[in-house]
Design a protein around this nucleic acid. Structure first.
Lengths: 255, 255
DNA sequence: TGGGCAAGGTTGTATATACAACTTTGCGAG
DNA sequence: CTCGCAAAGTTGTATATACAACCTTGCCCA
């Protein structure tokens, strides 16, 4: 193997995912066949097969034996927790993601932040505050604290290009997460940042994420109740993945 | 290949899963290595590798290169979806659960209910509407539809003693669930039933549950935003279970 | 013109082989 | 006794090959 860090099947997966997220490949479109991938990427057919098979298991593609491989119709977040990166979630909907940075600073952890991160009061933490937009419309206010010694480069990072979640995941796999979901009335600042209507409720997610046995980041996410919802799917032991089309259908039901 | 319907990698997966579900293999136990599987099942190492790799991706196993393959520590409690029975949830908090029945009738499925349950308009369904209280205070309005031929005894059941969720689970294991979580303003009826303050937002959960490949029940849950929240924990492959005390701690953080 | 059949492409599975990277074990030298 | 290193075992990846099952296309024949 060449001096490449990523395995080749992963490179193939990245290639396909890239073409999907840029809109080059759209739902229903035909994806290169295994043999075409073999020629294009100079890999064996088994490697191409693994890439396409895994993407199918992950819900991105849809395969028909004898016919071909196609981009799956939709991809709603499988587990509520699986979708940690809002940019991916938006890209999967074929929409455009943009972000605005409201704060990016080094602070001393105080009160509940120190408590949530299991550190002493005054420990260095980065404080990030940003607004995520889907097709220009704000859908998430991310208020995040990150342990400074876990991600020292936080102040230099351009989080409008790489979301904090993606950045932190790249540093080290985030292994455990806990979250709380609640409905609440936003305060004026939040409502303002998210351009919410008066009296529109807020879907609030508090999430703490662990890496290698210690909490490394704690975030509060506020979403406009009218423009965002969490979807989940639960399949205990047995049955393999069914399509996510049903979740989509459920999503559309009005209360 | 012999006259076997299932692929051999699937047979290998079933073998491991079987040993886990009978308790023969317990969390942390060592699973047969690829080479041992090769000998035991007379398959190639690639086939054994695929079986173990897929089980790892699905969360059942945990692999360490150079060391071995082990049963993953836990698999329940990962999702928000785990708590299906509000009475159990309340009991876990050492509080008292009570329920009031507002409706318990046989109806014909219409509109979105028929659509959610994948049946024709007019199919018989039971409609249940009840309020769950924690220490006397309403915390959930359960608006549930159940396929009549799945649970024929629904009208005779005393749902103040056994919750619908517990009753349905007893009939047949509910295997898959999908849900959507959103924040919304309740209508007057809901607000009234839940004794909610004016302008208090509502945490709404839509959940559809499947059994043996077909949807059997569809429910809308409304909760007062000030008295109820969903908590979840996610532990992908490795780390052993920590107590839920941390989640509790996170719960108490104010926004 | 219409139907049927054959050919080619595609996915699904299975095997044998090879090498790299990592972990554990155990032995031998100091 | 301890440290270090070598050997063996394990997972991770990659390739070449093979055959079965299935779908689509297009051609040939009635």
């Amino acid at each position: 193997m060449s001096a490449l860090q990523k395995p080749r099947y992963q490179q193939a997966k990245d290639l396909i995912i890239g073409r999907i997220s840029t809109g080059d490949l759209r739902p229903g479109d035909r994806v290169p066949s295994e043999n075409e991938l073999v020629e294009a990427m100079r890999v064996s057919r088994m490697t191409a097969n693994r890439a396409l098979r895994e993407l199918t298991d992950e819900g991105y593609l849809h395969r028909v034996a004898g016919s071909g491989t196609f981009v799956a119709d939709f991809r709603a977040g499988s587990h509520v927790l699986e979708v940690q990166n809002i940019a991916d979630e938006i890209a999967a909907r074929q929409h455009s993601h943009s972000a605005g940075i409201l704060r990016q600073s080094l602070q001393h952890a105080r009160g509940e932040v120190a408590k949530a991160l299991h550190v002493e009061q005054g420990t260095d933490v980065f404080h990030l505050l940003l607004v995520h937009r889907e097709n220009g419309l704000p859908i998430q206010l991310e208020d995040r604290y990150v342990l400074a010694d876990f991600a020292p480069g936080c102040l230099e990072q351009d989080f409008t290009r790489i979301t904090p979640s993606a950045y932190l995941t790249a540093i080290s796999p985030l292994q455990e997460a806990e979250q709380v979901v609640r409905a609440a009335q936003p305060n004026a600042a939040v409502r303002n940042h998210l351009k919410m209507r008066q009296d529109e409720p807020c879907l609030v997610v508090l999430r703490r994420t662990w890496s290698h046995g210690r909490p490394v980041t704690f975030a509060r996410f506020h979403h406009p109740g009218s423009r965002y919802e969490l979807t989940g799917k639960y399949t205990p032991p047995g049955t393999p993945g069914s399509t996510s089309a049903d979740v989509v259908e459920l999503e559309k039901l009005e209360q």
